[in-house]
Amino acid sequence: MSGQVLTFRKVSRRFGSTVALDGLDLNVEPGTVLGLIGRNGAGKSTSLRLALGHLHPDAGDIRVLGHDPVTEGIKVREQVGLMSEEASLYGWMTVREIMTFAAGLHPNWDPAFAESFRKRLDLDPKRKIKDLSRGNKAKVSLVLAVAVRPRLLLLDDPTSGLDPLVRREVLEGVLESVPAEGGAVVYASHLIHDVERIADQVTVLDEGKSILEGDLEKIKARVRRVRAVFENEPPEQLTLPGLVSVERENRTLLVVADGANGELEQALQNAGAVNVTVEPLPLEEILVACLKGSGLTEDDDHA
């Protein structure tokens, strides 16, 4: 466990009768960007708030940079920056005032970096927060989160609702601000493309559980879609190795499988497929397949 930036061990948390997290395990190593993906209500924000100590777990153990956020919340927050979708900025303050205010609250505030980063993001220090666009508010939030030179940066849907240009600016800013050595980012979002752009690790959450996790490239290499064309109707009952999900289109089966290279193709041919072709999958398709495969087949515009 030592050396991990963030670890969750069997962490559970309920809100009344709703299970937000159900025995979640997470590991974030130094130098990694973890994409925390899931639908709304999957447990992403809850995970981040637990990591900051805002919420306390009902069960399990959390360590952030070796500290328990429940009992050592101050030490945790000294080393962690948070940028959230609903940036809780004081509208009556100017950009300068809110930076000064935040500087007074944080022992690790780097004024020079903060100032250069503000200029880099083209933020007018005299503008009041309430007069800023949504994109600029997100930039202010990013400045406040990274100016403390955090060892762990938590991003809670930071680009939600932003136009593509600003999203790109923010994401670039995130990548710039992560410490070269030892730093880590947890990027929680349902915007798969953004996650795919910067994450090297990914965990897919559904109903508070992790249903897929690992190195993003390896997952993309491992999870494939196989198109099998049969001469007649495909058999109803098929036992296929590594099966994640399967769809039928007349005489064609679209099978998503995790691993089982070669074995899957052979099994389909044995079942009567006359033509078997393998197609690579984008992360979004993998996520959809995972959700369908776990029995969660309802449509989700974001997933």
Binding site: L52, H54, P107
Partner: peptide, 14 residues
């Protein structure tokens, strides 16, 4: 009431 409470909660302040 204005949703700003978490600003301080996110900071390392008792």
């Amino acid at each position: 009431s204005t949703g700003n409470e978490s600003f301080l909660l996110e900071r390392p302040v008792l």
